[in-house]
Amino acid sequence: MDKRPGLIPELIIPIGAVAFGSYYISTVASLPFQARIVGIYVTGAICILSLALFIRFARELRSGEKSFSFAGFLSDPASEGRRWSVLLLTILFIALMPVLGFIVSLFLFVLGTVLIIGGMERLKVALLISTIMTVTAFTIFILFVRVRFPLSIVDQTIRNWVF
């Protein structure tokens, strides 16, 4: 496998920034001068800097210093597996909270995350941590502060039962 550091990950931010800058300009094109000015100057700067960066990357590629790959971005498969599983779980947590409600989604999320990182052998600890977290968060956010998180039947029943 190629041992040289890969360039592709480094390209994401400049390409993304140029794309975002172009989108930004497209939304302000018809606005009065004062609403436009910052976007134009900053996007201009982004384009110049990205261009400088692309030239540098091209040189590094040609001199063989770096390769056109993802090398160096990902670490060992076990850690990466955990990292992206946690991310997936986080997205699921946010997506499912409106359906499952506060308590159930939070409990499952914490439980799942502890198990992903700590391993299945920590099931008891995981149950303990997720129970304590859920109770603490419910007490603070729902009972005391009444933040308007999506509540399911479970949440409402418990809240009514406490009050």
């Binding site: 999320f109 914490v110 995350t113 502890v114 990182i117 977290m133 968060a137």
Partner: peptide, 11 residues
């Protein structure tokens, strides 16, 4: 340990 900190911080 991370298995405690990560879920707590994230949540």
């Amino acid at each position: 340990p991370a298995f405690f900190l990560v879920p707590t911080i994230l949540a």
